[in-house]
């Protein structure tokens, strides 16, 4: 086994995903600890151009038409080949729509240990993973063999994984990629008729605590009086109470308003990762232990149903005076 650290570069439709840079930053730390080199793995088709700002010592580039877009079976065949031939110390994947689909399958296929949702590594190289919606952390040592990890954002700045000096590119021949069982048909872009919440400066965001569709009116009233826009966490969108264009989070939009008001949102990691760029976060949640309070600027444990009407009145009064 080598001591080298390998990072799977995630990209989609010609764009490198931010988690790739987070993983490169983590990988650099691990390479320092193990006194080894940092390798990026880029699987794609005519996609070398994506490697320019990748902060790695070397980049393994694997070119094949079947790798043009992510497909779990083609990636699995390719990555198992690379890992078998290179025997890295660690392989990092994103805990994402790409990395999560593949890491567990590589783990079973090659009999390698996998830890998921790693947020950071300690200075002596232990992994620290978050579970239970970010309420509990689990720390552990890398296993003796090649260890696979999936990573969540938050522990490293993406800029630390970027470089002005492109990495040295090494080509790696893909395995035979025939009889694949997964095919990309097309990408469907989000609807563009709606406003873009990532550009709004005042957001009133509702979570499951809002309880019913009718109660959304409360949030709309507050939005109207503040000149803001209503958005939501995933459960509210999944209920069909607001269009998907209003989804804030990992699978929705990242937002960076001046003021973000979270009404009845617990602060799950998939939600929080998308709002930390906000200038001010105000969280209204009856659970004093809700993780949202760990990242909010201001918080209150009062019941949102007791507060909103009063707040709207006071805002109106303040505007009139």
């Amino acid at each position: 086994m080598s001591q080298d650290i390998y990072v799977l570069i995630e990209h989609n439709q010609g764009q490198v995903a931010e988690i790739s840079y987070v993983m490169l930053a983590a990988g650099r730390q691990l390479a320092g600890i193990h006194g080894s080199q940092l390798f990026a793995m880029l699987l794609g088709y005519q996609a070398q151009g994506l490697s320019l700002d990748i902060a790695a010592d070397k980049l393994l580039y694997i070119d094949h038409p079947a790798l043009k877009e992510f497909a779990q079976d083609a990636y699995l065949l390719t990555l198992t080949e690379i890992i078998k031939s290179r025997q890295p110390r660690v392989v990092l994947f994103g805990n994402t729509t790409i990395g999560s689909d593949i890491a567990g399958a590589v783990s079973i296929a090659l009999g390698l240990d996998l830890a998921s949702s790693c947020r950071y590594f300690t200075s002596d190289g232990k992994f620290v993973s978050q579970i239970c919606g970010g309420k509990i952390m689990a720390e552990g040592n890398l296993s003796s063999g090649t260890t696979l990890l999936t990573m969540v954002p938050g522990g490293y700045k993406p800029e630390e994984g970027q470089s002005e000096h492109p990495p040295v590119i090494e080509n790696f021949s893909p395995p035979v990629l025939d009889n694949l069982r997964i095919k990309n048909i097309k990408f469907i872009q989000p609807e563009s008729f709606d406003i873009d919440i990532s550009k709004e400066s005042i957001l009133i965001s509702v979570g499951r605590g809002i309880q019913t569709r009718d109660n959304l009116e409360l949030a709309e009233n507050l939005a109207n009086s503040l000149g803001g826009v209503v958005c939501a966490s995933r459960p509210v969108i999944d209920q069909g109470w607001l269009p998907t264009t209003r989804l804030v989070g990992k699978s929705g939009k990242h937002v960076k308003p001046k003021v973000y008001i979270a009404l009845g949102i617990s602060g799950a990691p998939e939600h929080v990762e998308a709002i930390t760029g906000s200038e001010t976060i105000i969280a209204i949640n009856t659970d004093p232990k809700a993780p949202i309070f760990d990242i909010a600027t201001y918080g209150t444990e009062t019941d949102l149903f007791d507060l909103i009407d009063v707040l709207v009145e006071k805002v109106e009064a303040a505007k009139a005076s």
């Binding site: 989609n12 990309n184 990408f187």
Partner: peptide, 12 residues
Amino acid sequence: EYPGGVIAEMSI
């Protein structure tokens, strides 16, 4: 689902 509301339609 991909981030940002992008959806990939796939056959499996």
